[in-house]
Design a protein around this nucleic acid. Sequence first.
RNA 1: GCUCUUGUGGACAAAUUGGCUAAGUCACCACACUUUCACUGUGGAGAUUGCGGGUUCGAACCCCGUCGAGAGUACCA
Length: 515
Amino acid sequence: MSIRVRFAPSPTGALHIGGIRTALFNYLLAKKHGGTFILRIEDTDQTRYVEGAEEYIIEALTWCGIAPTEGVGFGEGSYAPYRQSDRFKQGVYKKYANQLIDKGLAYYAFDTPQQLEAMRNTLQAEGAKNQAYSHATRTREDLGLNNSLRLAAEEVQKRIASGEPYVIRLKIEADQIVELTDIIRGHVQFNTNELDDKVLLKADGMPTYHLANIVDDYEMKITHVIRGEEWLPSAGHHVLIYRAFGWESVMPQFAHLPLILKPDGKGKLSKRDGAKFGFPVFPLEWQGAKAEDSFAGFRSVGFDPRAVVNFLALLGWNAGTEQEIFSLDELAEHFSLEKIHKAGARFDYDKAKWFNQQYIHATSNGDLAAQLHPLSMAKGYEATTEELSQFAGLMKERVVFLSEFLEKGYYFFEDVKEYDTANVTKRWKPENREKFNNLLVMMQDLDYTAPLSMEHAVKEWINANGMKMGEVLPILRIALAGTMQGPAIFDMAAYFGKDKTLSRLKKAFEVFDKI
RNA sequence: GCUCUUGUGGACAAAUUGGCUAAGUCACCACACUUUCACUGUGGAGAUUGCGGGUUCGAACCCCGUCGAGAGUACCA
């Protein structure tokens, strides 16, 4: 049987990085087995719908290179539509909910929020273990709940006919053990006495997650449900719903992923943690209605999507080998749900940066130049592709993000803005000024296409003139770049060429005189 | 509170499922290379596998207890 998986986010805002990881694991399983990966949009809560969220999800998956094979935004396959609000319009959920009513496995409930509140208060006052709408409470006379289990059939029909709002709840029997085998966690079980009668169809006619999810997974012939650990407590309900429909034999296999935790390990990573800890928790930047709802993304910070994917893949999973760097193809090849870890994985931003650095190192100078080009244009630099390529080669081992190339290496494209005066004062001695003048003269005759021979020549000159390396080399470095950090001196000189190198040195020496 | 889940160096984690001295990566420290920074390489420090019992010739792994952490507890997903 061909594997069919889905990623089913809710369009309530920017999709956070944990969602991307869930999507990635779905993608990897499908890719490994040549299966189908579906994007389904779960927009059954109209009050939480956020404009642009759906587009964001589509763009984020695309940017990460883990585009679904079918689904909203990715072509309609044979199970369209893939948006639950569209499926709702076709009446699918109501049809199935009614099936359960007919079988006597679900029932109508007319209780208002106020009545539910009153029920909870009563139960709490009694010291009940939980305050759920359940087998223990649904027909209790003193609670007076208005559902079709307690009310006469006629009364129920009358209420429905009069247009009174109602929900449909799953009728869960007492004293049963619901078992399921989770691929990651193994055997998990629940006692139905602890489970509440979940609402299946809301008063507005829309399904809840529980109903919609199962109906759609069934209709779309989903074979594996890979989702976050937060769903584990309701997995028992889900098994019961499959059973109620008579679909247990075709029920998908479950794999509940470990949570992604905050860097301090206290709680799951949330969207506010980005601002709190100073790193992105979203794939893409997001402009919310308010400033506090706007976030930076891995993309806007300068991450390579391949690094993000690689980092995410290793949050809760590893191949069991020493390999750390994986292409998407390699991930798919090695991936298996069984190797996913059970405990929550902490979000380690340093590790994320390390991955990005690795990917920058591994990217060719030409490719880096192409990526640098628009950034360089934006800064008003008129660098050629050839220059950018050479520049990338000199800087790539010194940066973590693409954006750092032009920040740390600005002096390749404009004049030095600031000299490291502390180091200049330490090494720039007036009595050596004459010798530096001579050095400038000597450097007129160097071959600026051959950094190695330049280096030899200058070092020879240093020896011949009774100077120390430490008196000269750092001075040249600061004169050319303004800072002690950066590429090899003669590589920079070769990049600049004779005229620019000499004029920079000359100008810098004059500045040094005044420091 | 109740239900479910989880616990291996600072972080991520491996351990052929009960079998040598508990891998490796990130971070940290030192050295080498660069008379810069970084990269790279070499080395180092850091763990009585949450804790306490038990079973066993032998336990990270099985059993009991205990503590911590997280998630869920909505007509949200």
